[in-house]
């Protein structure tokens, strides 16, 4: 792989799962792309497109079946610890411990990332102040509201000041107020020249935040480009329509897909 200055690089990433019935499921099929410093790259796709699998591979949570990837120059398979130290991973699936307080939770993840107690204290104070979390510092996670829980998750993601944020549908299921914390986090990260990989199936979110967007369907990229180019190439006025055009061009029967979705 040649060094192009990219923070995230993926080459031919492929992931096969074997389910309990012995059936092979190709979740991601040979994806290649790059994401650069200060860039927000959106991964767009319907449920089951392979977004979560792709992000888990990049965060060294699962291993690719084929292909390779690196984050900040560290290989996701051979150097998972270094990769994880540089990534802040947040998804709808990354829940927290009900019986720990907000401060204990953040301290726990800080320690696991290798930070010393003094650094953790300093960063916790700073994050809690910026997210207005002082009042919930010593309250158990199970006692918090949905929005407060999301703030603790954000604080947990940021405690080690990661260079890369990998956000997997971070606003799914959240109300407008809770979603704002995430949107603010993403904007703040961009301002700090961090790289953000944002998976979502909310087109408006992508339009609002992303520099470039990768359209993912059944494990394959239909396109990876800037928003303007995607819309322009498709001859449409919105990203949503552009995505549907791309699906049609890929031979997807949208009528059947809608019926399938309705079922």
């Amino acid at each position: 792989m040649t060094d192009t200055g990219a923070v995230i690089k993926a080459e031919g990433l492929h992931k096969v799962f074997v389910d309990a019935r012995g059936e092979e499921v190709h979740a991601v099929r040979g994806l290649s792309f790059e994401a650069h410093r200060g860039e927000i790259l959106g991964i767009l796709g319907p449920n089951g497109a392979g977004k979560t699998t792709l992000l888990r591979m990049l965060a060294s949570i699962i291993q690719p079946t084929e292909g390779r990837a690196s984050v900040c120059g560290f290989d996701v398979v051979r150097e998972p610890d270094e990769v994880k130290r540089r990534i802040g991973f947040l998804s709808g699936n990354t829940k927290l411990y009900a019986r720990l307080t907000a401060a204990e939770t953040v301290r726990y993840f800080g320690r696991l990332t290798g930070l010393d107690d003094e650094t953790i204290r300093r960063r916790t104070d700073s994050i809690f102040a910026s997210l207005n979390m002082e009042t919930i510092r010593d309250r158990r996670f199970e006692k918090l509201s949905t929005g407060q829980k999301q703030k603790v998750s954000v604080a947990r993601t940021l405690i080690h000041d990661p260079e890369v944020l990998v956000l997997d549908e971070p606003t799914a299921g959240l109300d407008v107020i809770a979603s704002r914390a995430i949107v603010s986090l993403i904007r703040e990260a961009k301002a700090q020249h961090k790289t953000v990989l944002l998976s979502t199936h909310y087109m408006t979110e992508a339009e609002e935040l992303c520099d470039r967007v990768a359209l993912l369907h059944e494990g394959l990229f239909l396109a990876v480009d800037t928003l303007d180019r995607l819309v322009e190439d498709a001859g449409t006025t919105s990203l949503n329509e552009a995505f549907l055009r791309r699906l049609e061009a890929a031979g997807v029967d949208l009528g059947s897909a809608n019926e399938e979705a309705a079922r």
Binding site: A59, I61, D81, R85, F89, N93, T94, F109, R156
Partner: peptide, 14 residues
């Protein structure tokens, strides 16, 4: 079930 297993796997803990 609580979804915390993925959270700990995002850390460098082996």
């Amino acid at each position: 079930e609580r979804g915390t297993i993925e959270t700990i796997l995002t850390t460098p803990a082996g």
